[in-house]
């Protein structure tokens, strides 16, 4: 699991670096004054006296693609409250399930408010089928989970499409799990009886702290990742057993747990300023 986690985060960090390099020209223009940004752009043509500048893409070739760069006055304007939705799917949880004993299928709907506050609703299916090598105890659960939370965009420039965010989630799941095993041998009197706890019902609640980022790849398609620290709040107490895996939370141990996600994101542009100025 750790090697898969490492792989995904190395890959995503390289990808984010590449995406940042591609957009570095536009980002520099957003953060600094327009005139200063022009110095770092390799091929620029000043097309109109209004201050709008057509920028060529330094990767794909001069004169083929143009982008709208806001003026300093426009940067100072606040964005309207509603900035659209994004829908996303997590591939990390699916990868974990294909490579290991447990994982998730997960999707999310995120609302953008001024591109500052980002409420989110996550819905998924947690799956686990695990047999311990030593004790031969078998555990199985397939159940949905839900999370609701709020993220805050940490980047200073809210007009760009990329985001770095921090936030929290509240998650819960109601599930039934099956647990069975060969039983334990009586060391004094002798004898052994297998056990079977089928259909044990439980409800769990937890909190998550989230840190992540999201980068525009092309047009409305984004990719991003997040790391999460999860705090288990409570689970239904059963005399016979405790849940080994909680859908949406992960495996239970004696402490809290870390997790991650890698998301494919589709941005529903709604109310955003998107304008292209063709080159003369």
């Amino acid at each position: 699991m750790l090697s898969c986690t490492a792989f995904f985060f190395i890959y995503s960090s390289l990808f984010v670096s590449m995406a940042q390099t591609t957009d570095s020209v536009a980002v520099a223009a957003y953060n600094d004054s327009v005139q200063v940004a022009l110095d770092s752009i390799s091929d620029v043509k000043d097309s109109q006296k209004s201050g709008k500048v057509a920028v060529t893409d330094s990767i794909s070739g001069a004169g083929k693609i143009s982008k709208w760069v806001p003026t300093e006055d426009e940067l100072k304007k606040e964005l309207p409250w509603f900035q659209g939705f994004t829908v996303s799917a997590d591939v990390f949880g699916l990868g974990m399930y294909l490579l290991g004993d447990y994982g998730t299928l997960e999707a999310a709907l995120r609302l953008s408010l001024k591109n500052v506050y980002l409420p989110i609703f996550e819905l998924g299916l947690g799956m686990c089928e695990h047999t311990d090598d030593n004790s031969k105890i078998h555990y199985k659960v397939n159940a949905p989970f839900f999370r609701i939370g709020l993220d805050y965009n940490l980047l200073k420039d809210k007009h760009q499409d990329n985001r770095m965010f921090a936030g929290f989630r509240y998650g819960f799941s109601t599930y039934k799990y099956d647990m069975n095993g060969p039983g334990v041998e009586d060391p004094v009197w002798g004898g052994k009886e297998p056990f079977d706890f089928g259909g044990t019902t439980s409800t769990s609640h937890w909190l998550e702290l989230v840190l992540g980022c999201q980068v525009k790849v092309f047009r409305n398609f984004h990719m991003g990742w997040s790391v999460r620290l999860k705090y288990h709040l409570s689970s239904t107490k059963n005399d016979n057993s405790k849940a080994y895996y909680i859908p949406g939370y992960g495996t239970t141990g004696n402490g809290n747990t870390w997790a991650g996600s890698y998301n494919l994101i589709f941005d529903l542009n709604w109310g955003k300023k998107k304008k292209t100025t063709p080159l003369p």
Binding site: H130, T131, I137, G181, F195, N240, Y244
Partner: peptide, 15 residues
């Protein structure tokens, strides 16, 4: 008596 499992890694106990 009844079987109790805290975690599959720990095995089962008899309470």
């Amino acid at each position: 008596g009844y079987t109790h499992v805290e975690n599959p890694e720990c095995g089962s106990y008899r309470f």
